[in-house]
């Protein structure tokens, strides 16, 4: 169970970012790319500064920068969001394998596990939630904060408005473009942090394409959680649990079919998407509906 939180955190960061971005009406399949550049930048900067916090900030900034590219093409040039997202992903993949080669063999001063005093001694719960790295604890604040900002503040209203009825926003004199830009870049920022958690707090290594599709999973989780931060948290941990389950069962010498187990999280997401697809589609921001309608037309 500890593995669920440990493995799910990087996905959770991306999912939070994608929630913000999608609420503003922009799907960013480049989340995976933001995560990758975040993982590399965090690792590289930590290697050079020996401070994982500066590394994490660099990772987040790199993720934000890549998301900015996505935002530019999608918002200014009105390019297809899904196609652009994929292009941005491959850009991230290419850039990181180019600049990452030098860091494959480096060791860095990574984030250390920090047991929360008192809380970590609570049986069961303490083990699951309070024996982690600082970036994981940060998500415990991030998730409610994301929910609060999106649902209860003026800023959140603007973001939701940009996704739902951008005309209304502009009628009231707000800069829709700016709001959407900020939402997408924030999404990239958080995805970059997720990558940083993967490389400097979890795996303690940089390796080409080390995210292995976790960014895509985050996008799927967000769709299936209907952009609700708490539900996305559950989805991320579910995926983390599925990832942790296979080695945990094997280490105990249980008889399991690991290939089936490995595909379980993806299957679960597909099933949920199919079941909830229709219902959720109607609830989606109108800006998003347009994106998906366009792809249905193929």
């Amino acid at each position: 169970m500890t593995g669920a939180v440990r493995g799910g955190t990087s996905i959770l960061y991306c999912a939070m970012g994608e929630s913000v971005s999608e609420t503003a009406g922009v799907v960013n399949l480049g989340t995976e790319g933001s995560m990758l550049v975040g993982a590399l930048a965090a690792y590289a900067i930590t290697a050079n500064t020996h401070n994982p916090w500066i590394g994490a900030l660099a990772g987040a900034s790199a993720g934000a920068a890549l998301a900015f590219v996505h935002a530019f093409f999608v918002l200014n040039r009105k390019a297809n969001q899904l196609a652009t997202g994929l292009v941005v992903l491959f850009l991230g993949l290419g850039l990181t394998s180019l600049f990452g080669a030098a860091y494959v063999a480096r060791t860095v001063n990574s984030f250390k596990t920090w047991k929360v005093p008192l809380l970590s001694h609570i049986p069961w719960i303490g083990q699951i939630f309070f024996q982690h790295d600082p970036l994981t604890y940060l998500t415990f604040l991030l998730v409610p904060a994301t929910w609060f900002v999106l649902q209860r503040t003026g800023v959140g209203l603007l973001v939701r408005g940009a996704g739902e009825r951008s005309e209304v926003l502009s009628t009231y004199g707000h800069n829709v473009l700016l709001v959407q830009y900020l939402a997408v870049v924030t999404g990239g920022f958080l995805a970059g942090l997720g990558g940083a958690q993967l490389s400097t707090a979890y795996a303690n290594a940089w390796f080409e394409n080390m995210t292995q599709g976790r960014g895509f999973v985050a996008v799927a989780v967000v769709i299936f959680a209907a952009r609700k931060p708490l539900a996305a948290m559950g989805g991320s941990y579910l995926f983390g649990a599925a990832l942790a389950l296979s080695p945990a069962l094997q280490a105990r010498g249980w008889h399991v079919n690991q290939f089936a187990l490995d595909s379980l999280p993806y299957l679960a997401i597909i099933v949920v998407l199919v079941l909830l697809g229709k219902k959720r589609a109607a609830e989606a921001p109108e800006g998003l509906q347009k994106v998906f309608e366009m792809s249905i037309a193929t």
Partner: peptide, 16 residues
């Protein structure tokens, strides 16, 4: 099931 997935390796090591 992968020659190099650092996150999975971490999980495998922790489980063991």
């Amino acid at each position: 099931s992968n020659w190099c997935d650092p996150a999975k390796q971490e999980e495998a090591a922790k489980s063991l």
